[in-house]
Design a binder for these strands. Structure first.
Lengths: 146, 146
DNA sequence: TGAAATTAGTTGCATAACTAACTATATGCC
DNA sequence: GGCATATAGTTAGTTATGCAACTAATTTCA
């Protein structure tokens, strides 16, 4: 078998993130077509703030799986777009609490609808059981590497 | 149910590419620890050239799922590092054939060993059957969105 | 109490992504 | 042949990522 060293090859698509990239691109496209001027990365930050507002930047790092500089700059851009506001914590002066503006709160429902619709497009022909398996495997991979 | 609009929430980790990001980071770290000075993006280009050398940039776009500017710059950097060389096609003067240097050929085995080892680390505790399911779902998602 | 270690956040640098606009070559078709 | 169209690749601008080094505030503990 001449290509023995590539026997795992199909799995490198996981490394390249081809499936998640495809989903992300489609979501970005769907946002754009609805006239929403946010990136998927910004959206993923807003997503966690909609679940729980006024998180510290560190907490956003943990929840979005990004490092601190990435969050610093995402928050910079979100602040420029008036979607969030940094507020100094009263109990710990090192901490910035990142809070949603009214404009961001208004975006919640429509963007989540678009995200759900995008996931539906992505998952056509995929049975629920297999989705559960993917979630399980992802969690295991995540736990193995973190 | 107050959080109804988030019912699909767990799946947004697919959009965020958390699992593939974790694998990619680990692979990058393993490369670095072996003294290999390449990025995973560069590696993914080399990977396709090891399978078939002297591909056009457009073909590399298709196989690595990147757009043309991304490939232009990846090839720029790989050329600076003397790992590939652009060669004009003799039959179509628009086309650059991207060919491996000897230095790149020598990197094949060790980097693929590291990638396989990284996948093994990532997949500890995951059964073969579930891996097949993930591959199947990814392929379906990909086909749905491309 | 006060020095050392930890934690939160920022900045600088290199690489990479997407979009849009561009050049150059090739192909199709009248 | 020659114009319209398509294809291959590059460039410019904005956003994002990872790492390392940095400041400022807090906690630990001798």
């Amino acid at each position: 078998m001449p290509n023995n060293q590539f026997k795992r090859g199909e799995l490198y698509s996981v490394i390249n993130g081809m499936a998640s990239t495809a989903v992300a691109r489609r979501l970005q496209k769907n946002f754009r077509q609805s006239g929403l001027e946010i990136t998927i990365e910004q959206w993923s930050v807003l997503y966690h703030l909609w679940k729980e507002d006024c998180l510290s930047q560190q907490e956003l790092c943990n929840r979005t799986f990004r490092d601190k500089p990435s969050i610093t700059r995402l928050i910079d851009n979100l602040e420029k777009q008036k979607l969030v506001k940094r507020t100094a914590s009263k109990t710990d002066r090192r901490i910035n609490l990142v809070c949603l503006t009214d404009a961001a709160k208004e975006m919640q429902q429509v963007t989540i609808d678009i995200a759900n619709q995008t996931m539906n497009e992505a998952l056509v022909g995929v049975i629920k059981e297999d989705i559960e398996t993917v979630k399980k495997v992802f969690q295991q991979v995540f736990d193995n590497l973190i």
